[in-house]
Write a protein that binds this DNA or RNA. Sequence first.
DNA 1: AAAAAGAGCAACCCGGGGGTTGCACAATTC
DNA 2: GAATTGTGCAACCCCCGGGTTGCTCTTTTT
Lengths: 117, 117
Amino acid sequence: MSKPEALSPAKLKDAAPLFAALGDATRLGLLVSLCASGPASLTRLSGRFEVSRQAITKHLEVLSEAGLVTSVREGRERIWALEPTRLADAHAYLDRISRQWDDALARLQAFVETDRP
Amino acid sequence: MSKPEALSPAKLKDAAPLFAALGDATRLGLLVSLCASGPASLTRLSGRFEVSRQAITKHLEVLSEAGLVTSVREGRERIWALEPTRLADAHAYLDRISRQWDDALARLQAFVETDRP
DNA sequence: AAAAAGAGCAACCCGGGGGTTGCACAATTC
DNA sequence: GAATTGTGCAACCCCCGGGTTGCTCTTTTT
């Protein structure tokens, strides 16, 4: 009968922008690209997409504010890299919801199998 | 040296709307609420949030189009419930990226530890 | 039959997201 | 020093997302 920890409103407010940052095909592509080919500069990254360099800049800013990427200045370039911990955060949030879901299913099951007034 | 399967562009285009649907605090709250208290009607759900009933309707439509919830008409009510498989999908997508990330880290590690010209 | 409850529909508002172009600035390279 | 490469900044456009209000329709309830 152990209630699993529910996601607090605070957690939800942290999770929402995180998922929102993941909710764009170009940004997901950027993450995958950074995964597959390692840290890269802006022009290097934008060369792999159909949109303009400035569009990529904005996407990287969004990812950065969500904590999913970090950047370091190197000479005249800026090198972008993934931040794995935030990816793990998103993973954990989904885990929380999934567990709550599983628990709900179990309780529903128990409810259905019980004779009730 | 096995390359992990990269997320294909097709997968990315499926994943993006899914994460986008998760990228709103109210919608996450709805999912959690449906998890915690089971299937519920619109007014029942909207009673738990600060926004109007119509706003909740729109959020439920978004979740529905993302495949995260389903609804069934029951008398004058419409009952909304979670769709667990889509939650698992999101989970799987993050897994894919995480694995790619881990692999990238390993390759980076190997690269750093190698004497190169 | 009349009143109340639950949903659906439509119009509207406003802000921000995704995209673009154009120009300015810093760092390299020749 | 001059040309090139890599970014940054600003303005602008368009459209959609989140929210609202108001009205209608159907189903219960009394």
